[in-house]
């Protein structure tokens, strides 16, 4: 890699790190200024709403199959998602619903692949 390319890698790495780190420094100062009992309220409401919605947006993106033209991949995604939700409803845990979702999704892909 050329030295210019290394500089580009470092600039991107430092920029990405600062975008993750500086808002924390800002928020910690804001919290420190307010009373200890108001720690949660120190966060502006729009920010506390936007955080969970960013995760939800990433969920939306990840629900679209890599081959959106294939009805099978949509079917497998839907069945995998239902399996995840059912196991979550029963166990209220983190690992088992994910394992069940992946196994079900994989089973639909494999079985449909054998049939096709």
């Amino acid at each position: 890699m050329s030295s210019e390319l290394w500089i580009a890698v470092l600039a991107t790495a430092i920029g990405t790190f600062l975008m993750r780190c500086l808002p924390l420094v800002w928020m910690r100062r804001r919290i420190r200024k307010l009373a200890e009992s108001d720690r949660i309220d120190a966060m502006p409401q729009w920010l506390s709403i936007l955080g969970p919605l960013m995760i939800t947006a990433v969920l939306g993106v990840s629900l679209v199959p890599s081959d959106p033209a294939s009805p099978l991949s949509w079917l497998a995604t839907a069945i995998g998602a239902i399996a995840t939700l059912l196991v979550w409803y029963r166990t209220r845990s983190l690992g088992w619903p994910v394992a069940a979702g992946v196994a079900t999704y994989g089973a639909v892909i494999v079985v449909a692949g054998m049939g096709g």
């Binding site: 939800t56 995604t77 999704y105």
Partner: peptide
């Protein structure tokens, strides 16, 4: 198939975190 199936762990995990 492994590369096709394993990434479903992410939507599955996000679902559990969002629900």
């Amino acid at each position: 198939l492994l590369g096709e199936i394993m990434p479903f762990a992410l939507p599955s995990l996000f679902l559990v975190l969002v629900v």
